[in-house]
Structure formats: structure tokens, C-alpha cells
Design a protein around this nucleic acid. Structure first.
Lengths: 344, 344
DNA sequence: TCATGCTCTGTGAGCGTTCACAGTAGAGAA
DNA sequence: TTCTCTACTGTGAACGCTCACAGAGCATGA
């Protein structure tokens, strides 16, 4: 009741010194128990553990970082248009997956949004100054100056999706876009479709390119010639899906299926088909990509390709930590999965 | 070419000592320039600024924190079911708004997700150990043990939305739910509706309660008796919107409008009404709440109440920083806005 | 016996800052 | 002149931790 009241202000937390005194050992021994704990006797370890519990000791990370040179934290960096990611729920799954995977290693995640030029400058300084040990990068597309600068500065870096123009020195984790596209087109063939159109993603991104490649690959394999009138390009947005569907309907009235490179675009496609009086999947089958919530929000529910976002995030963290630990950059490609619903 | 190559590893960054030497002054003077900069001559200041630029010096935050006791960082804490927030794009707007507002003060944001019990424990320790100076709290509903513990520990705390069961000692920033509801019901009356139903939000949250209160208030004011058969409760989810709409249609076939406490629920309502052959807004007008992307994704586009998420985030940061600076807790209520579209 | 190795422990130094304090120089007042 | 005040500057100590090192105790082998 006397000094134990902490009403109002925060009291000074116990230090490693207090723990050492409490346990009847030296600072060094406490420190050894805290980190790995080699070369410490069972008796000492127990005494220290007890003392830690009694005092409620938590290591002061600033003091530790000051001497180790590590910050024991990593940045989650989102460059370029944020709106794009913000309307995509997969982004949240990725962010939360990374946060939780890091939490398991007791490493906090710093969120960094590089929107304006000023923010980009600040973030670059912050990172290159060593305030984080590494960076999880979500860059929209091509040549990202921030990422390039970080790479040049030797900051451990793991990108989500294959980055463009960063050389081969940067790690990345990506879903197998091409194989996902192959699965979808194979599926459309399997349900009897032959005039299969495609609305692509942005072709300045590896994802966009790969999905298109998978589409062409399977059609060719099936002995179906690629009809360029059946391929229109989009940018993953709902609006571009609508535009693409309209062009496609105009250019190829005999279309009986369309593979759309994102669920968001597919949502737009469904709207256009409905207005045009086409029944899905009876007249035209529609396949999406992403398995975003949009896929189940629409009617008919969308057949789509699921990207393993949970695994992507844990892999990104694993690769980053390995790289911080001194290992070489690595590329990880993860398998996708066809999710069949009502639209095919 | 000799030592200037930094291929591979990172080189040791310049310290305040290097800057002092370079500028021909002492550490103390450099430090004074860095912080506020009182009692430093123009000449010295200029020399230091120059030296900082030349050396590319960035302050070592760990060393600073070690002595000041501040961490100069804040946590963004999300407790309870994350899925709920993750499907809500407003969450992203809030998160990004807070991140950017903090960035302007050069304060990094640490993302903390308290899902499991284990995570809760870790996060509580982390925060009470003083590893962050304050916390932006997004708690779903009632009695949150983490929040309560933080409050008790005297950690500066600002909640998004009025928190329940935390006493009056905790700051919060919220939209004016009641007034938003009032606006919507007034609007429904203005377009000639009289049998106005409501699907509420969870009634163990202030938001849910307030929106219901606003609804009842305006109807009473207009001389319309509250018909309990017209009020069903939901939990903001799409599924509960569908269920609510079905009950409402069954209980009150003469319904001519419904005020739905979230856009997501309204999405479900529209689906049910369509299946039931009701035209919107001709037969039944539908009003939502949130102005989420869902509002424009559906047909007809939803008339709804916009919450000022951008202002909410900047206000949360402002209040938190003030509180960290020693000011008293504060409550901020921000006005909402009616957005008229096609559904009313 | 002494040397060697192994496990375990304590000690001092130092990481890069800020802060309190002491001290200097110059201006103005007595 | 001398004293005081103000504006500015430098210095040592400390923040809490880890790390390298030295050394103690004990067992093993020559």
C-alpha cells in the first residue's frame, strides 16, 4: 500500500542487476540464461528463472540493441499506391501472417508506408541507419527506387512476389502463378469449353506475365491455337474487368469461357455478363484468381485459384530471418490450389 | 574503391562523435542541435548541420532511448477476432492513417495482434515493459483484459470507438454514431417512408447501441411509435444481414425501408430482397452505415453514412501524443456524413 | 605430481546517446 | 575596473545491457 501503488506514473522497471542480486549471481550469468544459456549450471539457471519471475523482469531491448548492433525488429514496407492493396483483403492476411510469424520469434513488426516522396526518403534513411534488421517488401510493380537503394545498402530483403529489376540478389516468396493459370485453363477445358478468353493482369508484373503464359501453354498443349482476339489486358481492378469483358464480348461473340486474372476483375466481368443477358456458367464459364472474399460475395460464387497467403507470409519471415542470420538470398515458389464453385 | 565498397555487409554508421569532430564542436553541441536546439550559436548550428549532411549521420535511437527512457515508438494493438477487422477495408484506412500521422512525427508504428492467449501475454509484457510509449487500441467489444491491464499500468492509451468497461480514464476517438443514425432515419422519412425497420449492430458495443438510439429518437420525434417487430439485431456481418432481412420480411410484410447498421449487413439484405422479388428502392429503401467499398460494389449502390476514418486516425494519434506528453485523457467525437446513392 | 581440458562464474569495458554541471567569453552595469 | 548576467560550449557520468576475458573448480590423463 505504501510504495507498491503505481497509480498515475509508471515505475522504474527492474534491471538485469536487480535480477542478479535477487538470484545471488552476477549479471553475466543472468545474461547467459537470457540468451541461449550455454555454460550455466542448472542451479544457477533455476535461481535466475525464479528471480526473473519474482521481479517481473523484462529485458531492455534498447540497451541490448545498443551493444549488439541488432534492433531485433523488422520492417514491413509497402511502396507505391496503397489504395490498391487496401482494397485487397489478401493484403491483410499477408500482414497479419507476417506479424504473427515474427511474434513467435519475439520480433516486432514496424509498418512502413512509402506513399509520398518525403515518406520514401524518411523510410530509406530509417532502414539504412540500421533501425530494423531486415525488410519484408510488398512492392506493387516495376523498378522500385526504395527497394533498389535498400538492396544496394545490403539490407536483408524479402519481397512478396517476384520483384522486377532488382537483380537476382533479392529473396522473394511467390505463389506459382503459371501453374495456377495452367490449372484453371485445364479445368475450363475439362468442363468442355473451347473458346476460352482471358483478361490478363498488368503485363509489367511477373504475376501478370506468368498467368498469361500458363493460359497459352495449356491451350497450345491441347492443340488449340491462341486467338489474340480472345486476350485482353487489365490491371486487376474491377473497372478493368468490366472494360475487358465488354471488349471480349464484342470481339468474340462465341466465347464460352473466360479466365480472369483476378477475382476483383471477375466481379466486374460477372456484372457485364449479367447485363448482356449471358448466363454463368451455362453460356459462359468464368474463372478467377486469388480466392479473395469477392469470390464468394458474388453470384454465382467464383471458381478461382487460391494463393497460399498464410504460407507465403510464414515463408517470407523464415527466409528473412535466415538472411539476417547470414544465409544467402533465396527464392521460394509455393503451389496454388483450384477452388471450384459455381461459375464454371 | 578501397574501403568505400560496401558490397555484402553493412558498414558501421557514423556516431554523434564523428559529427562533432567533423564540425569541430563537442558532442553536447551536436546533441543540442539535434534536440530543439536552444542555446546554440548560428555558426555552430550551421557547422553541425553541414557535418550531419556530409557524414550522413542518423541518430541511434537505441542509445537515445536507453537514456531518455522513451522508446519514441507506439503500438497499434488489435485485440480479439482479427478476421472481423480484416474483412473491413475501413480497418486499413485507419491503420494507414495512423501510420502516416505518426510518421510525420518520426515515430514508428508497431503492429500488435492479440489473437491467442499466448500473444496477449507477450504483448502485455512488451508494452508494460515500456517498449512503446503508448498504444492505439482497436478493441472489438466489451471487457478487454489486455486493455484493462494496460490502463492499470498507466500506459497512455487511445481507443478507436468508445471502449466499454475501461472507466472514464481512457481516451477515445469515435464517430458520432447516434447522429449518423439520426441523419439516415431523417433521410428515409424525407423520401416518404414510414414503416422503417432496423437491423442493429451488436448491442454490447456502444456503436451498436448508439445507432439504435438514433433510430428510435428520430422516429419518436416524428410521432411514429417504435414497433419492436421492426427491429432485429445483427453483428455487422453479411450473414447476419441476410438473416435479419428474412426475419424482417416475415415479421413485417409492409416494410418500406430498412436502416442497416453496417454496409456489410446491407449487402446481405440486398441479396435477400432481390431473391424475395422486392425492388430497391422502389418497394423498400435500404440505408447502410460505414461507406465501405461494399457500398458501391453492390447494385443498387448503397446510401450510407460515412465515418471520417482519416480524421479518426489523425485524431487518435494527436490525442495519444498529447497524453504521452503528459496531458489528461480526452474523448473526441467526430461528425459523420450522409452519402446518398441509389438504394433510397 | 603436474599439465590439460572442460564447465561454469564474475568483472570491466564499452555500445552512442543525453543530461547536469562547470566553465568561458563578452556585454552591460556599477 | 570589477562584478553580474547571459549566451554558449565542453566534459564526465550514466542509461542497461553484452561480450571478451580471466579465473576458479574439478575431472582426466600422462
Amino acid at each position: 500500500m505504501t510504495m507498491s501503488s503505481n497509480a498515475g506514473g509508471r515505475r522504474k522497471p527492474p534491471t538485469i542487476h536487480d535480477v542478479a542480486r535477487e538470484a545471488g549471481v552476477s549479471r553475466g550469468t543472468v545474461s547467459r540464461v537470457l540468451n541461449g544459456g550455454h555454460y550455466v549450471s542448472p542451479a544457477a539457471r533455476e535461481a535466475v528463472d525464479d528471480a526473473i519471475r519474482r521481479t517481473g523482469y523484462v529485458v531492455n531491448r534498447h540497451a541490448r540493441s545498443l551493444i549488439t548492433g541488432r534492433s531485433d525488429s523488422v520492417g514491413f514496407l509497402l511502396t507505391e499506391p496503397q489504395e490498391r492493396f487496401f482494397e485487397d483483403p489478401n493484403f491483410n492476411v499477408l500482414l497479419s501472417g507476417c506479424t504473427q510469424a515474427l511474434a513467435r520469434h519475439d520480433i516486432p513488426l514496424l509498418l512502413m508506408l512509402a506513399g509520398t516522396k518525403e515518406e520514401r526518403r524518411r523510410i530509406t534513411r530509417y532502414i539504412t541507419a540500421g533501425h530494423v534488421d531486415g525488410v519484408l517488401l510488398v512492392s506493387s510493380h516495376s523498378g522500385d527506387p526504395v527497394a533498389e537503394e535498400l538492396r544496394a545498402a545490403g539490407v536483408p530483403l524479402v519481397a512478396c512476389g517476384k520483384p522486377i529489376g532488382l537483380g537476382s540478389k533479392v529473396s522473394y516468396v511467390a505463389a506459382d502463378d503459371r501453374d495456377g493459370a495452367r490449372d484453371m485453363v485445364r479445368h475450363l477445358l475439362a468442363v468442355g469449353r473451347r473458346r476460352i478468353g482471358m483478361i490478363t493482369g498488368p503485363l509489367d508484373t511477373p504475376g501478370g506475365v506468368e498467368r498469361l503464359a500458363g493460359y497459352k501453354e495449356i491451350l497450345t498443349e491441347a492443340g488449340i491455337a491462341i486467338d489474340e482476339a480472345l486476350v485482353v489486358s487489365g490491371d486487376y481492378s474491377k473497372a478493368s474487368g468490366e472494360a475487358g469483358a465488354e471488349r471480349l464480348l464484342a470481339q468474340a461473340p462465341d466465347l464460352d469461357a473466360v479466365f480472369v486474372a483476378s477475382d476483383l476483375m471477375a466481379q466486374g466481368v460477372l456484372a457485364v455478363l449479367q447485363r448482356a443477358g449471358k448466363r454463368v456458367p451455362d453460356d459462359i464459364a468464368v474463372g478467377g484468381f486469388d480466392d479473395s472474399p469477392a469470390a464468394t460475395a458474388v453470384t454465382p460464387a467464383l471458381t478461382t485459384i487460391r494463393q497460399p497467403w498464410d504460407r507465403i507470409s510464414t515463408e517470407m519471415v523464415r527466409v528473412l530471418l535466415a538472411q539476417i542470420g547470414g544465409e544467402d538470398p533465396a527464392a521460394v515458389i509455393l503451389p496454388t490450389e483450384l477452388v471450384r464453385r459455381e461459375s464454371t
